[in-house]
Structures are given as structure tokens and as C-alpha cells.
Design a protein around this nucleic acid. Structure first.
Lengths: 384, 384
DNA sequence: CTGAAAGCGCTTACAG
DNA sequence: CTGAAAGCGCTTACAG
């Protein structure tokens, strides 16, 4: 019975059963912890499994169980050639995906990750192909219009991220309103800035629209002026932010006292463009972002922004899908609180308490929400 | 026959067949383009597929075909708590993964992405579970020791990234030797720096070892001094780099004229730590990295580094797996050339030609290898 | 506790 | 060109 060389051969449950001298039903029971197999049976099976390096076929299990134990995650790549290098925007997405993955593993699920190009025709066909391989689908922002989501949701459970709930799908997002409110109040009330601009992102992004609206509302309530117009259009990318600032300045446009960016990447590009023009941040113009991506703290000056609990949001998206698969449906629209993270790009002074010592090291590593980073708790109304 | 409300019901090929008035074999043929179905048959089937929103079950297809059309990608998460925010190290991995995914789509494959924690017990069990759901496995650096790779390779085709080929698995890596040689020559010959240090990463990383060896060899050939010792140990993370510099300075250690970092993230942390001590980069100490992650260009000063063709490497890893699945095995060890990207952190002057104008905008977006970024072509000996 | 057998939803020779 | 049927590798009532 000794396997001499085991020529790269895939074994099935039948091989294991005959190797162990039991039926395939017993092998299956031992492997899945069903029933109460005798100790001897269990041991013989386990030995055979080990000796044959048996790995049960996932497709067969899925077909039999009606459960693939796989969720699909789909996001939209930016305006880039397939093999170009700009992937900054993916930071955000990948952090959420990591949260999804970790939550999935708790349930024995794995994650099928797929991206679609911004200009891909027929995203629906791609989605259908993916749908056949998964038990549920998590769609990032702007992957699909709402009508198409409703259609696909007939075939497979769907959760959207930073989208809008539909009658057939669920959604997870952050409290943009609260975040923007805190940001604007800090700039206008704490710093006394009277003129702002919102460097917007894609018009079809619910996050962008919510942030834009909240900024306008809050600024007007605080009696601050908001610059508007075509000049202030970005696309969530650093290059989009830089381009907007460059065109504005090239066209003789005037800068506000503070630029509120649709996200951190945009802020990165804005700071880059301002720096090259010799415009001091925050001395001449304050710049703030949204998201708190990891590099935000490493910029010069460190970026003031709003932190989203990305991993928790990802984990929540999976949990909604899972609940939907194994039970009825769950909460259709989950809103996560956010946190204002005050660093220096808003004009706040460098905090000498953070300039050295152990706290500082901890800050680089990654501070906890209650850590040394100067922040306020959210006044968000909805929780996870 | 009109479907009134289509109660969320999953249809099978039998439903389609009876709806179209044909056999399931015909449905399958139409859907898979096999044989020469009559036009009328094709049309009836397609209409039924559309009306029922039929999506073939991937598990059943996989079981029948012996092909899941899924590859698994596994990487190792850093020293972080599951829900913490530090994901800088993932930039690198995610860029490779995007290359894998794009290549996979060309073949109708999808990508199952999975991560294992640094201290996870029993990575092999996790891998076995994943192996059952995929046709092949792509393992990032340091996911598994070579012995375990050989063992798993009996069950499933394996390609490692930045690893070492084994008798049973293939490998894709970059030409670290050439990259480090160019970097050291630039620092020592072009800038005249006589003292260097290599801020190392994990000892079990082949990339790190190759870079370290190459630096020592090249520095000694160029008669430059290399600082060594426990102080110069990092872990590929920004915090690891910052910590090393901080301990060194706290212990009264002396800095070399140039710090060569194991990767860009490390360089990021080093620059951060130096900046807080008021040490000028590159005036007092030059800092260079490796990888050319997207933020490298946005740092102050912009980071001089070595660019790896990450997406191409990812695509190659998939192609190797695919060749292995559909034919015999391919090249066991593919080495990609790298490019020196000279920016300012090495001490090179800010290039005024790049300070404004359209080229500059293009640089922010992402320059092509032949674009305005000052770089030299690689003298790597092996190609993809 | 254990085994024989049906069934999961496809694909594909094999006849017709 | 088309259909009936076998088979892919599991899981799980159902008998024993």
C-alpha cells in the first residue's frame, strides 16, 4: 500500500475510501465532522487522507451543498492603461477588500476579486460570469448603475459599497455628512477661514455627491464662501487634483483659503501642484482630504482628513451577504461613523508632544482611534 | 409562458431547455459555442436564457469540465492586528495582483485572493482549503517555506513570486542584482558618496537577501564603506524603517551618507524619521528605495528608486500557471529587468524642465518608461 | 455507526 | 443537427 512516488495524481474521495477500507460516506463524515464515526474509522480515514494528500474538490462540494463558499468582489479600475502603474486609488478599495476577506475567512468563505475597466463595454456580461462562481456579490462604488444592480440581484445576493440601496440589494457606506460637517466646522470655526472650495470627484459617485452637498450646507450655515465652477472638478485621483489646480492657476483663477478635496488622493495631487508653484500649505492655502489613507500621515505637511473605518465596512459587507445567504435579508443600508483626524495641512500647529518618544513611533505604525492623533469622535447618528 | 414576477428563483439548464423546447445538450452547445446548432435553435435558446436571466452554475461546469477557471493568489499580511489600518505593504502586492487578474481575464479565469497572517499557525491547512477551490496557486513572497511548497505542489500547480523555484514549482522575480548595482553605482560613482548602509528587510525574503548581497558586492567593488549591524534591520514597512533610524539615533549611532532601503515603504519611514530629527534629505543623508510604488514620486523629496514591472510580473505568473494547467510546465524561473528611476532623494537636482508644462502633468499621472522621468534602461541579463 | 444510492447542474461522447 | 444518458466528485437522507 505504500505510495512509491505519488506521480502527480489527483486523488478523489473514492481513493481515500478504498485506501482506508471504508465507504466514501464515512470519509465524508469524518472530513466534515458529521455524525459520530468510530475512533478507529476516523483514524483510518485521517491516515489515508494524509498519505494521499487528499484535498476535496471544491466544485463537487459546492454542487452537492449548493454553497460555493465564495463571495465575489468587483471594483472599477481608474482611467489607466491595463499595465500602467497608477494604482493609488486602489489603496482605498484594497483596504476594504481586506476587511471583506478577513470576515469571509471566519465563515470558511474565500473571496473572488475582480475589476472592470472604466470604459469596459458590457460589464453585465462580466458580472454574470462571476456570478456563476460565487454565492454573493459585493460591488464597490460605481461598478454598475442601479437598474443593472436590480437585474443582477435576481440571480445573486448583492451588497454595494458606498452606493445606494435598491429594493433588491443592500448597501454599506460611511457617514459623509458628519465627516464633512466636522471638517468644515474645523476650517471655518476653529481656523476662521472664510473661503473654501470643494475639489469634486465623479458626479456619479454617491460619496462625492454627499460630501459636496454637506460641504455646501455646512459652509453656508457657517457663512463661509464656497468657490464653484468647472475648475473644481477632479476624479478621485492625484493627477485629477493636480490638473485642476494647474488649470485654475494657468487660467489666472484665484485660490480659496482652504481646499477641501473629495478624497486623500485628490489632496495629494493638489498639494503636489501647489508645492511646485511655490504656494505654501497650509500657510497660503490649507488642504484637507477624506479617507485617511496610510500615506496621509507621511505627507508634508501631514494631511488633515476624515477617517473611514474601511476594514470594518468591508467586514460588514461580507456579513450582510452571509446573513442574506444563510437566512433572510439583513439591514438594507448600514452607515458607519467617521472620525476627523486633525494633522497639519489644515493649519494646525505641529504638536511637539508627538515629535519624539514612544507615542510617536506608535503613530507611525498605526495609531488606534484613541491614540495620539488629535481627533474627535464622530457625531454620526447611525452605527454598524 | 410570460414570467409574471420571477420570484427570486435560480434557474438551471433544465429550465432553460424546457422553456426553449429543446434538450439541455442543445442549451449547453449554444452557450459554449460547440457544434453547429441551427439558427432557430440558437435563437430559441438565447431568448430563454435572456428571459430567465440564466447564469450557468460554475461549480457544475467545473465538476464536469475538470476546470474551475479560478487561480488562487495568497500573500502574507504584515505585523498588524486584523482590523488595523496599515496596509502600505499591500500596495506592492496589489499591483502584482492586478496584473495577475488582467492576464487571468484574458483566459476566462478569475482570481481568488487570500491572505494569511504573519503568525498564523497552520498555513498549510488554509492553503489546502484554497487549493480545493482553484486550478492553480500563485504564492507571494514568504507565504510558505520551500519544503511545504514542494508538498503542496503535488496537489496543485504552484508559481511563487519573488521566491525560489523548487523542483515542483515555478518562480517569477525581478533582477535585484542589476537594480542594486545601478543604484549603488549612481550613489557612489555619480554622487561620490563613500559611506552607505543597507536598511534590510526580513531575512527570509529572497528579494531582501539578493539586494543585500548585491549592495555589498557592488559597494566593495566601488570601494565604498557599508555600515552593518543589528541597527540596520527593518521589515519592509514604514514603521520598521522609522524605528531603525530612531533607535540608531537614540543610541548615538552615526548615519552614513546614503541609506539604501530594502524597499520604498522602508524609505518612507526613514525619511519620516530623519525629517523629524531635522536631518535634511538628501542634503545630510541621501535615501533611496526599491519598487517605485506610486507615492514615491509624491514624497518630499521625490524618491529615487528602482522600478519593478509589477503588473507584467503578475501577468507572467498567471501565464505560467495557465501553461502548466493546459500543457506541460513552462519556464521554471523567470527574471524581469528593472529600471533605475532617478528623482531627488539621492541628491540629484530638481529638474526645472519638469517643473511645469504638459510633461509634468503627464508625470503626475504616470509617466511611461520613456517619459520625462530621468531613468536609465536596465542592464539586466534575463528577460520576461 | 456505516454503506449503497440518489442527486447537485453541468458537458460531451454516442447514437440517431 | 439533436437528444438520451453517463459521468464529473462530493454530501446526505435512508436503510441496515
Amino acid at each position: 500500500m505504500a505510495e512509491a512516488k505519488r506521480p502527480r495524481e489527483i486523488h478523489t474521495i473514492y481513493d481515500v475510501a478504498s485506501h482506508a477500507g471504508v465507504s466514501i460516506a464515512s470519509v465524508s463524515r469524518v472530513l466534515n465532522g458529521q455524525g459520530r464515526p468510530r475512533v478507529e474509522t476516523r483514524e483510518r480515514v485521517m491516515r489515508a487522507v494524509r498519505e494521499l494528500a487528499f484535498v476535496p474538490d471544491g466544485a463537487a462540494r459546492a454542487l452537492s451543498n449548493g454553497l460555493k463558499e465564495v463571495v465575489g468582489v468587483v471594483f472599477r479600475r481608474g482611467n489607466q492603461t491595463p499595465l500602467a502603474v497608477e494604482n493609488e486609488c486602489l489603496l482605498f478599495i484594497n483596504d476594504i477588500n481586506l476587511g471583506i476577506e478577513i470576515a469571509a475567512h471566519h465563515r470558511g468563505f474565500d473571496v473572488l476579486v475582480s475589476s472592470v475597466g472604466v470604459h469596459d463595454r458590457d460589464v453585465s456580461t462580466r458580472l454574470a460570469a462571476i456570478a456563476g462562481k460565487v454565492d454573493g456579490l459585493i460591488l464597490h462604488d460605481r461598478t454598475l448603475p442601479a437598474s443593472a444592480i436590480v437585474r443582477h440581484a435576481e440571480t445573486v445576493p448583492i451588497v454595494t459599497l458606498a452606493g445606494t440601496p435598491t429594493p433588491a440589494s443592500m448597501n454599506v457606506r460611511c457617514d459623509n455628512e458628519s465627516g464633512m460637517r466636522q471638517l468644515v466646522r474645523h476650517l471655518v470655526l476653529d481656523h476662521g477661514y472664510r473661503s473654501l472650495a470643494y475639489l469634486a470627484a465623479n458626479a456619479d459617485s454617491p460619496d462625492n455627491r454627499a460630501r459636496s452637498r454637506a460641504l455646501e450646507a455646512e459652509a453656508s450655515a457657517a457663512r463661509a464662501h464656497v468657490r464653484t465652477g468647472r475648475a473644481w472638478q477632479g476624479d478621485y485621483s492625484a493627477s485629477g487634483g493636480a490638473r485642476a489646480i494647474e488649470s485654475l492657476l494657468a487660467g489666472g483663477g484665484e485660490l480659496p483659503r482652504a481646499v477641501v478635496c473629495a478624497n486623500d488622493q485628490t489632496a495629494l495631487g493638489v498639494m503636489h501642484a501647489l508645492g511646485r508653484r511655490g504656494i505654501a500649505v497650509p500657510g497660503d492655502v490649507a488642504v484637507v482630504g477624506f479617507d485617511d489613507i496610510p500615506v496621509a500621515r507621511h505627507l508634508r505637511p501631514p494631511l488633515t482628513t476624515v477617517r473611514q473605518p474601511l476594514r470594518q465596512m468591508g467586514a460588514c459587507a461580507f456579513d450582510l451577504i452571509h446573513a442574506r445567504i444563510s437566512a433572510g435579508r439583513g439591514e438594507p443600508d448600514v452607515v458607519f461613523p467617521v472620525q476627523l483626524v486633525v494633522r497639519e495641512s489644515c493649519g494646525c500647529a505641529h504638536d511637539p508632544a508627538r515629535a519624539a518618544g514612544p507615542q510617536d513611533e506608535r503613530d507611525v505604525r498605526e495609531s488606534l482611534p484613541t491614540g495620539p492623533v488629535h481627533m474627535r469622535s464622530s457625531d454620526a447618528s447611525a452605527g454598524g
